[in-house]
């Protein structure tokens, strides 16, 4: 178990270190998110009486779309530089590699969200800083990272991998987006989190279920 955790930490550390040096993933995700928010801000200004009404949808769709850019890179960069085999040769259960990669993706998406949230406040003039809302965003982000990382591994050996990842990923993460948007609407309208229990349960069950599926299937997904 100690070795398993050490491999998770090593893979996480390596991904974060490489990203701090190259900034490939963060730059792409952040620029995309800023542009998406800017375009949506202007688009909704023309037709919607109160822009704040569309904030939940705008926020979650921007996070989901920006995440796909980073999630795709998780295994594509390993495959392209030929280092994926090095990770898979580690003498532990390969799910440790998955968890290390997933946690690194989680950090990358959370950092981009730290960038997106103030921009959303600025563009849409709405307060998003509340503990229940941050909890909902965290749970939703975990869902995106969990599913996105396993699908990134699944598509990395395909020819049209950049196209295939969003096509496979978005239908699967629909429960995350729907529950995230529903809870954000409720919280912005002043509902307590306890009133949104069903959506919260859905999000938590989704995260746990896909974490278990990824744990059980990762070895088969990456082996030829």
């Amino acid at each position: 178990m100690k070795r398993y955790l050490r491999v998770i930490a090593a893979v996480w550390w390596k991904d974060v270190r490489v990203e701090l040096r190259s900034k490939d993933i963060f730059t792409g995700m952040a620029v995309f998110a800023a542009l998406a928010l800017l375009i949506l801000n202007f688009a909704f200004e023309l037709r919607v009486p109160d822009k704040r009404m569309v904030v939940p949808g705008v926020l979650w769709v921007t996070v989901a779309f920006a995440s796909v850019l980073g999630l795709g890179r998780a295994f594509i960069s390993e495959k392209d530089r030929g280092s994926l085999a090095g990770l898979l040769l580690a003498p532990v259960d390969r799910s440790a590699v998955y968890f290390g990669k997933m946690l690194a993706n989680l950090v990358f998406i959370l950092v981009v969200e730290l960038f997106i949230l103030p921009l959303t406040v600025l563009f849409f003039n709405v307060s998003l800083i509340s503990l229940p809302l941050l909890l909902v965003i965290l749970l939703g982000t975990i869902g995106l990272a969990v599913v996105g990382t396993i699908f990134s591994a699944l598509t990395v050996n395909t020819r049209a991998r950049e196209v295939l990842l969003p096509i496979l990923l978005f239908p699967i993460i629909l429960p995350v987006l729907v529950s995230g948007i529903r809870m954000t609407i409720g919280l912005l309208e002043g509902d307590p989190l306890s009133k949104l229990g069903n959506w919260l349960q859905l999000l938590i069950i989704f995260d746990i279920l896909y974490l278990a599926i990824a744990f059980l299937t990762f070895d088969y997904v990456v082996e030829e």
Partner: peptide
């Protein structure tokens, strides 16, 4: 050891 070095350029 393969023709791909299994190393990270940014490390």
């Amino acid at each position: 050891v393969s023709h791909a070095p299994l190393l990270y350029d940014d490390l």
